[in-house]
Nucleic acid binder design. Structure first.
Lengths: 254, 254
DNA sequence: CCACTAGGTGAACGTTGATAACAAAGCATA
DNA sequence: TATGCTTTGTTATCAACGTTCACCTAGTGG
């Protein structure tokens, strides 16, 4: 790794980068089409006009490839969230929170398999690396909501549940979290944040995993209602607006 | 299929039933130890002292085996729920609801892989059968909470959100659900039920899938707090009691 | 021009799910 | 009791998988 040259994009390096992208591209299509586990090194190589062992010059194992994919997906989801958030003015914190939440659901519904990879049970043989780019991506992802939430709290504090109604052990945990991660939220506000996230995650996960179909054929309305309830809870119901009806139409897969 | 004999448990039938159980038993251990995807027909056969094709006399495919496992797990989870519920007197609806909810979390935390199989993303190559014993098991599972919830509502109606705050499409969906499934709940009460379930499912899924570890190392306290909040929302906070502290200690996996 | 290395191939190992052809039990009936 | 069908299991085989090794080739840098 002699990073001597100012122009690190040599002819070969560019080709290598292209190959990286091509591999991931094909893996993505396999993932989306065949579901997880449909990612097969040999199939990728075949489609690329290569042989399987050649891929090991790029990824040390299938797990590494999948990890790279997850990181990419995380990044794209993060991008979608930030884009939705930044489409509104900075002072409209409530609107930004709504937009980010909706973006989270939209992306998840449109990428069910990928959602499962990120937020669901770990893949069969796939061992989740404990500390790596994946965890970092997760942290940045959480930061979006955390940031908006703390802004909201700083701007106009919303009513909190009594401390007594929160499990003391949870209070301890939240205090430690606030201390180590530098999030200036009192424990009960931290709990409200967690509770909000639980509802958003729960609603989306249930929809994506087809776990709510027995009651509700399509998850959009439920999510919208949850969002609205949350906004009243956080005192930003004024900034709640029904989404564009055209944007909520999503053809979910089988 | 001549069901002529009154004694269907012939010598062979018993042996066959034993073999069924042995297969599932080994598959369960593989699942728990190796994670999903660790279930391999050949490995099962090897461990049984058989050859792989012989297993096809019992299950038409690996998917069928997994489906059978899921149904079994569903049944056991259901049993745990009912047991926890029935440990309390029938008139203590609130307590029963708490007990069932806690049983749901306990089982899920103690069976993370199995939980993923039931409530998470479908397995790689596994195609979820649209209508079968699995759906039936899911229906019975939901019935536990639905039953308690409707009882609770019939006994002492809790405050409901204004109809106007619920997405009209969701109202329509809930009306249709109440009509087709015979659950005598007004739409807004149906929404409250769904919202409660979203929070319970969300909290448990996040804990099991390790999606909340960044904030909270152990999910018990968060779940308890959620449960308590829900009970206040449903007007049964009087019947809320802190669980036995000894029962909340659960050694979660790596 | 020459040496070195990155990138790719072929063969091989051990694994998987699945099917087809065939043998041996078990069981029931003539 | 003897015959014949059904159930249960085996062997052989196929196609696919991840991964490793030895080898080759083409491009790069000195």
């Amino acid at each position: 790794m002699k990073s001597r040259s100012v122009q690190p994009t040599s002819r070969r390096d560019r080709h290598r980068e292209e190959t990286y992208q091509e591999i991931k591209e094909i893996a993505r299509r396999q993932l989306a089409e065949q579901g997880p586990g449909g990612i097969a090194l040999r199939a990728i190589a075949r489609e690329m006009g290569m042989t399987a062992p050649g891929l090991y010059r790029y990824y040390a194992s299938l797990d590494d490839l999948i990890t790279a994919l997850i990181v990419d997906y995380y990044g794209e989801l993060l991008g979608a969230l930030e884009a939705a958030r930044d489409a509104l003015p900075v002072d409209n914190v409530g609107g930004r929170l709504h937009a980010a939440s909706r973006a989270f659901r939209s992306w998840s519904v449109q990428h069910p398999v990928e959602f499962g990879l990120i937020f669901g049970a770990p893949l069969p043989r796939y061992a989740r690396p404990p500390q790596g780019p994946r965890e970092e991506a997760g942290a940045r992802f959480g930061q979006v909501f955390r940031g908006l939430f703390t802004q909201l709290w700083a701007r106009s504090p919303f009513p909190l549940p009594e401390e007594g109604s929160i499990d003391p052990r949870l209070v301890t945990q939240l205090e430690r979290y606030a201390r180590t991660s530098g999030v200036p939220l009192p424990p009960s506000a931290g709990y409200v944040f967690l509770a909000c996230w639980v509802r958003i995650y729960g609603a989306v996960a249930m929809e994506v995993f087809g776990q709510v179909r027995w009651a509700v054929p399509e998850g959009g309305p439920l999510f919208e209602t949850e969002l609205r309830q949350l906004s009243t809870m956080l005192g930003i119901s004024d900034e709640y607006e029904s989404p564009d009806t055209t944007a909520s139409e999503v053809g979910s897969g089988p």
